[in-house]
Amino acid sequence: MPGNTTDVRRYPGFFAFTILCLVLLYTPLIIVTIYSFNDSTSITTWGGFSWRWYQDVFFGIEAAKFKTAAWNSLSIATMAAITATVIATSAAIGMIRGNSFRGKSLSFGLINLPLMVPEIVSAVATLIFFSAIGITRGYFSILIAHMVFCIPFAYLPIAARLEGIEKSYEEAAIDLYATRWKAFTRVLMPLLAPGIMSGFLLAFIISLDDFIITNFVKGAGVETLPTAIFGSVKQGIKPNIMALSTLMLLVSVFFVSLSYYVNKLGERSRK
């Protein structure tokens, strides 16, 4: 593509907007990362480089609280993402490969319902529901709520991948006397694997990220990392929170990069 001024695609200034966009997106994160290494107790002044707030996160007064919260977050995210991925894989095959029936389009709406209902509304509805049927709020109620809103996030990449796989593969398996289950586990699932993997990772990150719904259904005493951080931040931003935030930031970046990489691999294998 020629980069000269007569190129119809080129609009002067759009590059500047793109840079501005990236600056706006990254500055807050970079600044917090830098200040998490600040030796000073005051968050405003720079007192030299230090690891002390990271030590504080792991060994300080609040370390026990953060550890429990981190464990809750990770275990809930893992279980919710696995469940959601299994349900979403089954749903994607049903939607894309299954026979048509009346109400199938409604089904598409139902799967994506958690994306359409505003989070705060889901939070209120779930809280009301749990209290009405008498489920005690705590770890279990958080887990259930997370499973639900993770389903569409797991569904989207799996369905996208499945649409790109031709039917003939599993049909060949059936013609060669594979059972339906074998055709799925031996033929379709390996082809679908990149989609399933990125669906799982998406669901996992979304679960780790959630604040509002968790905050409503968690009850007293059970905290996940976001609710614990929120509680702390309400009393002012402290340096140890910045260190914790930086660690979570790294975890997110790791998982997103992993998901991106898996997708890239998937694209390559399709060609």
Partner: peptide
């Protein structure tokens, strides 16, 4: 097709989960 006839069974878990824990709550 390989998955003809079982679409409803494949979709049922997602319906149950979202229907029971989101639609009903709303």
């Amino acid at each position: 097709g390989v998955f003809d006839g079982i679409a409803i069974r494949l979709l049922a878990p997602s319906w149950l989960m979202i229907g029971f824990f989101l639609l009903l709550p709303v």
